Amino acid sequence: MKTFDLQRMALNDVPLDFLWEVALRSLYTFILVFLFLKITGRRGVRQMSLFEVLIILTLGSAAGDVAFYHDVPMLPVLIVFVTLGLLYRLVMWLMSHSEKLENLLEGKPSVLIEEGEFAWEKMKSQNMTEFEFFMELRLVGVEHLGQVRLAILETNGQISVYFFPDKLVRPGLPILPEPCCERFIKVPEDADYACIHCSEVVTLNTGDETPCPRCEHKFWVKACTATRVT
């Protein structure tokens, strides 16, 4: 086989006219995926559960094959879409009658913040880094965890945030990027400090090198008390 053969790389053994068929096949699969999304009533991936994303990935695989490979017939792909559409409807019906099945396929919402601090045991079980989590909170205007009464990780990956009123905001862990928040092992002055690992807030005195009583990590940042700007 000749390397860097432009003819092979561009068309391989199919004729140039096959490109018109690729365009038709792509339109065909686009319409099938569009109709499937209309049937499910979803407007975007962020509204989808894990089960629904799995269905879409399976459809995408079938759609890609029929669009690009000349020896993949179009009718069987239609049967794949119809079958998955019926499966989706059946599973939705079963989940509406079985909470256990719904929890298995959709998962459960998880509380990540309670009363201005990480719900530590629940947070450890989630497959999410603190960088992702803090980014999501910053996008809704959170500066520190003391502003947040409750944060819930929904089954579609989005985070629902419920805030304290301004007069009830408490000292909390700042969630700004690291260059914006100086870290200390030995604290420089009397103040409230937040553990950067678990968000526990404690009052420390000048020169203290106390590890966190909650998780035993030793790095602190000054707790923030800013209210939200709305």
Rank of each mutant, 00 (worst) to 15 (best):
L78R: 07
L78C: 06
L78N: 01
F81H: 09
F81I: 00
V82H: 11
V82Y: 09
T83W: 01
G85C: 05
L87K: 00
Y88H: 15
R89F: 08
V91L: 11
V91M: 14
M92Q: 14
M92E: 15
W93N: 10
L94H: 12
L94V: 11
M95N: 06
M95Y: 12
S96V: 02
H97E: 08
S98N: 14
S98C: 05
S98D: 08
E99Y: 02
E99G: 11
K100D: 01
N103Y: 15
N103Q: 15
L104Q: 13
L105E: 10
E106N: 15
E106D: 12
G107M: 07
K108G: 05
P109K: 11
S110E: 15
S110M: 15
S110F: 13
V111I: 15
I113H: 05
E114R: 15
E114F: 12
E115K: 01
G116W: 08
G116C: 10
G116N: 06
F118H: 04
W120I: 07
W120E: 01
E121C: 04
E121N: 10
K122T: 13
K122L: 13
M123V: 12
M123N: 08
S125R: 14
S125K: 14
S125H: 12
M128K: 12
T129F: 02
E130T: 11
E132L: 06
E132A: 11
F134I: 08
F134K: 04
F134P: 03
F134Q: 06
M135T: 09
E136A: 12
E136S: 03
L137S: 00
R138W: 01
R138Q: 09
L139Y: 04
V140P: 02
V140A: 07
G141C: 07
G141H: 06
G141K: 01
G141I: 01
V142G: 05
E143M: 11
E143G: 10
H144I: 03
G146Y: 04
G146F: 01
Q147K: 03
R149L: 14
L153E: 08
L153C: 00
L153R: 05
N156W: 07
Q158A: 00
Q158R: 09
I159H: 04
I159P: 04
S160F: 15
S160R: 14
V161A: 05
V161W: 00
V161M: 03
V161T: 05
V161H: 02
F163C: 02
